[in-house]
Amino acid sequence: KEILIVQPYMKHPLQNRWTLWFYKNDKNKPWQANLRLVTKFDTVEDFWALYNHIQLASRLMSGCDYAVFKDGIEPMWEDNRNKCGGRWLITLSKQQRMLELDQYWLETLLCLIGEAFDDYSNDICGAVINVRAKGDKIAIWTCDTENEEAVLHIGKTYKERLGLPMKVVIGYQAHADTATKSGLGVKNKFVV
């Protein structure tokens, strides 16, 4: 009699549980009502099952966002873990939507779930992608603008992981500044 030994397939656990949020711009409702918690995941396999299933960012309607945040952190400035923090912001041209948007967003997610920032990964809150007609944006949110060492390490590592050329400069903006920005645009607290 042949004995079949079935190797139980063990999922690979992530350091953190993450939540995927989706925001669809419906002007008739307050913005909080447009924000939906889609699902949570905490293994590599569940991440891929989700990512391979949902619509690519480049195919979302203008005005939509995806956000992936650590479980318990809401993708908004007001959240306790975000209000003293800021974001490394990648602004893309319209042409980049078809070429690089999906690639940059996936790389951002792999940085998050893979804990790519060593011990500074503790400062990571999440990431947001805004699909907009005037130019898409991707950002990684961190929890403390004053933790310069963490912010700069995260920015440098992120820029490398995205494969951005040295001459391309990315900026880190405090949410408090973004929230109160006048028309002039937001000043960068750090750049790499």
Binding site: E115, D118, D119
Partner: peptide
């Protein structure tokens, strides 16, 4: 404490595993 880290190569290899 320890931290569970996955590099890009490993994560991409897992993309189409069963």
């Amino acid at each position: 404490g320890t931290r569970i880290i996955y590099d890009r190569k490993f994560l991409m290899e897992c993309r189409h595993s069963p």
